[in-house]
Design a binder for these strands. Structure first.
Length: 465
RNA sequence: UCCUCCUUAGCUCAGUUGGUUAGAGCAUCUGACUGUUAAUCAGAGGGUCGCUAGUUCAAGUCUAGCAGGGGGAGCCA
């Protein structure tokens, strides 16, 4: 086949250039027909829909057509024509067919019938070829792009926080060690502990659990920054909402207080969901039909409604007055459980909720204390079905107040001297938040398990592919 | 990590109070069919019942351990 530019199927399905010659390349989903005519459903990943290729059997060698099975990869040159069938507007009358790669029908695991998501996780190397994962991966891309678009439009700068870190200052969870020492015979200190001064970085290093502290350093110079990168937590979490390797977006804004922080979080989430509705409707309609009939209406509702804002203290009062029986009792000073958050979002308010003013003892050291001396300027955005999708706060910018919290919480000063320097030199009020990227994708796609919204999930006991 | 459920053909699942050769749909293969829409119709092949022990005359079925997976919870994003 001569070298010609490939037409994307997404473009051809919208085209009205009947009679023109086109070239498509993609993977066969089904082939059906009789001894005179064959129909091939071809997909190239550019859109959830397939294009129908019509083949006059007599015009091709039998051996060639035999190779075209579900999963095989082919190139087709032909004429774009108006379809006489009911299910599609256009189709391609094949003139020339080349088989790039066969797929043995006996052993190719994907069939034209649907598969369970659990089975597809076991063949994650092939699942991008399904309608479901095509849709999820296109939406995931669109959301990543929209995040950069939003922040760029708002005057933020993309700051690349390090992935390898020498400090565990945020205490966000167990960490993975990064080392080049000989694992069979590491250098030891007299006490028997491993001597990390001989390791690659001259100290013990880990994979990051958060880019926030580095983002704060950036905000103290560029005013508005955000990070967007992989994050690693070595927690033994086995739930449909946790990954050991996930992606997180962490904006950090100088001169923002907690209210500015909430305004940004709400506007940001609504922008992203609006973007999905505007750019990914084909994929959303597919997911709405196959997995979650309320997906699109729920997305539209979130875009249209104002998020409910209230304090932790008010939330505790509502929960206590609810008359519900809880597995975990509601008591001022303890963290809210999943059942409490779900009640507020799904039953009491029926819309996204932003909670603020949490007790200081259940939140991180860097959060700014309120005047009451008991609560901090934290904010959590709670979404239906997902729970906490965003966690953020106004940061403590006063050096003495921050030092007091660091001592109270036994954080080694030598690990965070650089962080403290920002409060020593030209400190400024500032705030920020973290958005779990996969949790956003869960909400936007309506998928139920976080392992199905990332190409190759890493979870306890699973690092295949 | 805790609680709970599950593991039978390539996939999704039946399988009765323990009892001969373990079934179905789809997929695959063969054939039929002049435009199909997850095509249809006919036929065929396909199983170490997750693994290991145990109870029993007899285990897919009962018991225990292990492995893998789902759901809920905790940790969190």
């Amino acid at each position: 086949m001569e070298h010609t530019r490939r037409n994307r199927i997404v473009d051809l399905l919208k085209s009205k250039s009947y009679g023109s010659e086109v070239l498509v390349k993609g993977w066969v989903r089904t082939k059906r027909g009789n001894k005179n005519i064959n129909f091939i459903a071809l997909n190239d990943g550019s859109v959830v829909h397939h294009i129908q290729v019509v083949v006059e059997v007599a015009a091709y060698p039998e051996d060639l057509l035999k190779l075209i099975t579900t999963g095989s990869c082919i190139a087709v040159k032909g004429i774009l024509v108006e379809s006489v069938g009911q299910e599609q507007h256009v189709e391609i009358q094949a003139r020339e067919i080349e088989v790039y790669g066969t797929a043995d029908a006996e052993s190719y695991p994907l069939q034209k019938k649907g598969h369970s998501l659990e089975f597809l996780r076991e063949i994650a190397h092939l699942r991008p070829r399904t309608n479901t994962f095509g849709a999820v991966l296109r939406i995931r891309h669109a959301m990543a792009f929209a995040i950069h678009q939003y922040f760029n439009d708002q005057g933020f700068y993309y700051l690349h926080a390090p992935i390898i870190t020498g400090s565990d200052a945020e205490g966000a969870g167990a960490m993975f060690r990064v080392s080049t020492l000989d694992d069979k015979n590491p250098p030891l200190l007299p006490g028997g502990h491993v001597d990390y001064s001989q390791d690659f970085f001259g100290k013990e290093t880990k994979l990051t659990v958060s880019g926030q502290l580095e983002a704060e350093l950036g905000a103290m110079a560029l005013s508005l920054v955000y990070t967007f990168g992989p994050t690693f937590r070595a927690e033994n979490s086995n739930t449909p909402r946790h990954l050991a390797e996930f992606w997180m977006i962490e904006p950090e804004m100088a001169f923002y207080d907690i209210h500015d922080d909430m305004d940004l979080a709400e506007d940001f989430l609504k922008y992203l969901i609006r973007y999905a509705l505007g750019h990914c409707l084909d994929d959303l309609e597919f997911l709405n039909k196959m997995y979650d009939n309320e997906l699109i209406s729920r997305l539209k509702q979130v875009v249209d409604e104002k998020f409910e804002r209230l304090t932790y203290t008010e939330a505790v009062e509502i929960l206590k007055a609810s008359g519900q029986t809880w597995e975990y009792p509601v008591d001022w000073g303890t963290d809210l459980q999943a059942e409490h958050e779900r009640y507020l979002v799904e039953k009491h308010f029926g819309r996204p909720v932003i909670l603020t003013g949490y007790p200081k003892d259940i939140k991180a050291f860097y959060m700014k204390m309120n005047e009451d001396g008991k609560t901090v300027r934290a904010m959590d955005v709670l979404f239906p079905k997902i729970g906490e999708i965003i966690g953020g706060s106004q940061r403590e910018e006063n050096l003495e107040a921050l030092m007091k919290r660091i001592h109270e919480m036994n954080i080694p000063e030598k690990d965070v001297w650089w962080y403290l320097d920002t409060r020593k030199f030209g400190t400024a009020p500032h705030a920020g938040f973290g958005l779990g990227f996969e949790r956003l994708i869960l909400f936007v796609t309506g998928m139920a398990n976080i392992r199905d919204v990332i190409p190759f999930p890493r979870t306890p006991k699973n690092a295949e592919f």
